[in-house]
Amino acid sequence: MAVPFYVSPDQIMQDKAEYARKGIAKGRSIVAVEYADGLLLMAENPSASLNKISEIYDRIAFAGVGKYSEFENLRKAGIRYADLKGYAYSRQDVTTKSLANAYSETIGTIFTRDPKPLEVEILVVEVGETPAQNEMYHVSFDGTITDRQQFAVIGGQADRIRTYLQEHYQTDLPLAEALALSRRSLLAGYERPPAEESALEVGLLERGRVGRRFYRMTQAEAARAMAATNNGS
């Protein structure tokens, strides 16, 4: 019987991480930004039907970058998890913290156990009753979970976008301005700005809604809102 070559765990993990990072770097970034009346998620997405941003529960939304089939499975699993919990207990008992932890554990387990890691990075965000109660969790391909405030970025160009937002983010922005800021930050992710702007996918968690707070903004609505700020400034 052939004895398998010894490869150090260090090497295995490094290789897996590099593999996952490469996969994720191909995808465009997604930003989540807290604004005065809630939270917004924005992605560049040429497809109108293959979404990167989705509703999970009353106050909770999800965004994923990387391999579509993989984050789509995570998204569905999250919806099942939330709906089951809400059905078995109550709607208030579905918390973002426990969902994000479950994601972290699942993704982490796959990273260590499976030969191929997930090539995904996800955001799980919740709009709180007050801005201080907003929650944003970033779970990366190895299951590392990070708590974010004000804004969160995932995807290949995350570093550059994060730098832009650190410089330009302001608290309590009205929706239109937060949209414009998010779009500018996504553009800042490019080394050279693209000739043609990609279609945007926008999901909102609006504090003022009753029940399910998620709202998917159409391309036209987002464009109209942002045009209004350009004229104003």
Partner: peptide, 10 residues
Amino acid sequence: MPLFAGSYDG
């Protein structure tokens, strides 16, 4: 899996 242990996928 902590997230979801089921077999149903619809």
